[in-house]
Simulated assay, not measured.
Amino acid sequence: MTPALSAQALTKDECVTGLRTVLGILEKWQATSDQACRILRISRSTYTRAKQRETNWSVSLDSDQLQRISLVLNIHGALRLIFDNPENVYGFAAMPNENEFFNGHAPLEIMARGDMISLYETFRRIDALRGAQW
């Protein structure tokens, strides 16, 4: 996993770009708006404004929110390495998983609990599928 980004290291425009990119991924994973807001710890109004693609809109994200964006991007990257077809890359997160950690729940459900541990552990379990050693 890449090191956590500091909030000072990114401009507001870069925050918007990262947020919109991750919202696009979450949408392809079939996340609801409520799930996306919990996963990224953003408000409904921030979610709505990011989805509207206003050109003059900007947002400041704190280090926790940037870490969440990083984890979603890393999960997406791991899924792209594991699977060849887009159906699995984008469908895996919504599929029930019998792995002990997921216990029959979809990874998306676990991530949408909203706590950092669930998001991080989801990343670790998916990353391990590609052979990552922890």
Results as ranks from 00 to 15, higher is better:
M1D: 02
M1I: 08
M1W: 05
L5I: 13
L5Q: 12
L5D: 10
A7C: 11
L10W: 05
L10G: 00
L10T: 04
T11V: 05
K12Y: 13
D13R: 13
D13A: 15
C15F: 03
V16H: 14
T17E: 10
T17S: 11
G18D: 13
L19I: 02
R20T: 08
T21F: 09
G24W: 10
I25F: 11
L26M: 07
A31F: 01
T32G: 04
S33A: 14
D34G: 11
Q35L: 01
A36T: 02
A36Y: 00
C37F: 06
S43K: 11
R44A: 13
T46F: 06
T48A: 15
T48K: 12
A50Y: 07
T55C: 12
T55D: 13
T55W: 07
N56T: 11
W57T: 04
S58A: 08
D62F: 00
D62I: 00
L71E: 01
L73N: 12
L73P: 00
I75E: 02
H76L: 01
A78L: 00
R80N: 06
R80L: 05
R80A: 11
L81G: 15
L81E: 13
I82M: 11
P86K: 05
E87H: 11
N88V: 02
N88D: 15
G91L: 06
F92S: 05
A93N: 05
A94D: 08
E98D: 14
F101V: 01
F101A: 05
F101H: 06
G104N: 07
P107T: 06
P107F: 04
P107D: 07
L108R: 01
I110T: 12
I110G: 04
A112T: 00
D115V: 06
M116K: 02
Y120C: 03
Y120L: 12
E121A: 04
T122D: 05
R124Q: 12
R124K: 13
R125M: 09
I126L: 07
A128Q: 11
A128H: 07
L129R: 02
L129E: 07
R130T: 15
G131Y: 09
G131H: 15
Q133I: 15
W134C: 09
W134I: 09
